[in-house]
Write a protein that binds this DNA or RNA. Structure first.
Length: 289
DNA sequence: AAATTAGACAACCGCACTCCA
DNA sequence: TTGGAGTGCGGTTGTCTAATT
């Protein structure tokens, strides 16, 4: 007998989220926290399944998300992590601030993969193909054009590690069709990052952001200059060890971060601002057309 | 200007895993 | 120990937009 479906799909809405749905979900989570995703849509008044709500929150609404294109450094890090971890996107994402596994996976599939292929890098081994292609400077124009939207023009060598013998990790190999080869040396390095200083506290960031978010949820009109993070809002933290994205964030080793870090809050607020089009014109973006 | 194509990204699906009664 | 519930995760599909013809 099969598993019971996660939700009764009859009468549930699918497809792109509307701004109204986003508001409902955000308001609910801010007011109640997350205890059980299955109950969230019902309590929040959404005609979505819990899974869909979870995905929307994790991939799009979470205040600590970093929106925008990947930087050169991030791309390099993705390539390196992928060489070590394979298609374990959530593991890879855990090494980035404000990036989701979905985002990284999409970026890999649409940009990086293509770029590596163009550069003659074998995706299975992350090694350069037999005959070395042109260096970055000798890159044909059409290829350069193809890369022009990503800010980098870098030889594949940055991403390629030739030195260590690759060990095929059976655990990973079955994943996907790329027959990913895992370097176990790197695997341990990345699964147990040594330098905790590189990790930010997502939870701290989140708390800081929530204060601001609560502020604008409570105000009909936004007043950017008057925002302060002194309100005493706190998210009801999940009480069990069930790992929501939020809860997981608490586990990450972290540097002490100032909850009132104005730079971060400004940045996030601006992003939310432009995302929803609140501050200026209530001009809803094409996300919601 | 309209039609077609390609790229990017959001969202869904279904299996795997963990927790708990 | 077992089975159900809830959630995580990776692969895939759908949709939208920009570029091209």
């Amino acid at each position: 007998m099969g598993r019971k479906p996660c939700c009764d799909k009859v009468g549930l809405k699918r497809g792109p989220w509307t701004i109204d749905e986003d508001h409902k979900l955000m308001s609910f989570i801010l007011g109640n926290g997350i205890h059980c995703w299955r109950t969230v849509p019902k309590l929040a008044g959404l005609l979505r399944c819990g899974k869909s709500c979870r995905l929307r929150w994790i991939n799009y609404l979470r205040p600590d998300l970093k929106r925008g294109g990947f930087t050169e450094a991030e791309e390099d890090q993705i390539i390196e992590l992928h060489a070590a971890l394979g298609n374990r996107w959530s593991k890879i994402a855990s090494h980035f601030d404000g990036r989701t596994d979905n985002e990284i996976k999409n970026h890999w599939n649409t940009r990086i993969k293509k770029r590596l292929k163009e550069m003659g890098v074998d995706l299975a081994s992350h090694k350069s193909a037999a005959k070395p292609k042109q260096t970055g400077n000798e890159q044909p124009k059409d290829q350069m054009d193809a890369d022009s939207d990503s800010t980098k023009e870098q030889p594949a060598q940055t991403a390629i590690r030739e030195e260590t013998p690759k060990v095929t990790n059976a655990d990973t190999q079955h994943e996907g069709s790329e027959d990913v080869v895992v370097d176990n040396n790197k695997l341990s390095q990345f699964e147990h990052p040594g330098n905790d200083d590189d990790l930010l506290s997502d939870y701290d960031i989140f708390n800081g952001s929530l204060e601001v978010l609560e502020h604008w949820l409570n105000e009909d009109s936004l007043e950017l200059d008057g925002r302060s993070s002194s309100t005493s809002f706190s998210l009801n933290a999940p009480t069990s060890e069930t790992s929501t994205g939020l809860h997981e964030a608490q586990h990450s080793d972290s540097v002490i971060r100032d909850d009132n870090d104005p730079a971060y809050l400004h940045q996030w607020f601006d992003e939310m601002d432009s995302f929803f089009g609140f501050s200026s014109s209530l001009d809803i973006t094409n996300h919601y057309e």
